[in-house]
Design a protein around this nucleic acid. Structure first.
Lengths: 192, 192
DNA sequence: GTCAGGTCTGACACCCGGTGTCAGTCCTGA
DNA sequence: TCAGGACTGACACCGGGTGTCAGACCTGAC
């Protein structure tokens, strides 16, 4: 049960978010100042920072929601599946959705590659890895090494992010290619 | 042949770099202001920015030099070696050096994990991948896919970075472990 | 030697993201 | 209705980064 305060606060956050994303889409991330976002949302600059700690957070929040869905899909894969198979399957719906809303996804992915957003994207990948690694640990060949001393889950989650990211990098330049197929090709370099 | 101007400029850059790294080591990256660095190097804040575009660059420059040496080692591996074998071999001397200068390396690696340096490290990894990917391309199983449409080199370079990074993450917490062995264990999740 | 060109420098004002503080207002629950 | 906390705008400040200007400095040509 949430209090009224929390709900109104969330509503304000949502308003700021949609106002901000509209501005980002129109002018880009860096070119949009916090002042403009605050004004579009009808509040002072200072108040903006009472709802969001940083401008980056406006981007991150949405991306994290998205990533948590993927994590849920991964967790729902049958326990018998190996790490690579499971992660490939968990990510498949996203690939399909990207190819369905081709132009919108392409524009989004290209915006994400804006230099001013690099550190945000890096942070997103960091969080993504932290989210996926524990889910992958059980799907790796067993060892006697204790959890917190086994680098493999982090490495596999990281490699998966890199496969995705490199597939998207190629796709951004050659949007006629199939994103799913690019991802398969990228991952083929690991699983062998 | 370089001009006198270029050489003095380089000398000044070196002085600023050593002054800055001394301060970073003592107080950390974020806690050190550009003003302090400029003062330690005997110049104004404005002049500092005439030698380095950003404070990050002070960190990046040194890391990139380091990474270029690894790239050279990778390029020098026999052409018959596969991508994973070659990259593991190219990185081996670094691992040894880290274990030899155990405490200094550990302090350095821990400083690199400072939150304020995350975006810098991300940029470093980005550049590292760009450096390694073309060297790995020839060591992958041949396909009919043209160079610029093959995501595998980027993916493999990215995965290698992630293996390294996860090995270092574990090492930072368990410095008694062997870094080489951690890296082997991380990479064992790929090569199979 | 001197004079004109470009370079390097400090100083100052400014932008933007982010924070501390304060006083006033609004909301909630007793 | 009233006390306490939450929310707000305003303002001053910090630190990284940039544009600009005027003076010092260096260099090469005459």
């Amino acid at each position: 049960m949430t209090t009224l305060r929390e709900r109104t606060r969330q509503a304000v956050r949502d308003e700021v978010l949609t106002a901000a994303w509209r501005l980002f889409a129109r002018h880009g991330f860096e070119a949009t100042t916090v002042e403009q976002i605050a004004e579009a949302a009808g509040m002072s600059r200072r108040s903006f920072f009472r709802y969001f700690a940083t401008k980056e957070e406006l981007i991150l929040v949405r991306l994290i929601e998205h990533d948590e869905k993927i994590a849920a899909l991964l967790a729902a894969r049958p326990a018998t599946e190996g790490a690579w198979t499971a992660i490939r399957a968990a990510v498949a719906p996203i690939m399909e959705s990207h190819e369905q809303h081709h132009d919108r996804s392409l524009a989004l992915i290209r915006m994400m590659r804006e230099p001013g957003l690099r550190s945000t994207i890096a942070e997103r990948e960091r969080l993504w890895i932290g989210l996926m690694a524990p889910l992958l640990a059980k799907r790796l060949p067993r060892t006697s090494v204790p959890f917190d001393q086994d680098p493999r889950p982090l490495a596999v989650a990281g490699a998966a992010v890199m496969a995705l990211s490199s597939a998207q990098a190629i796709w951004a330049e050659h949007p006629d290619k199939s994103l799913s197929r690019l991802l398969d090709r990228a991952m083929s370099a690991f699983d062998s």
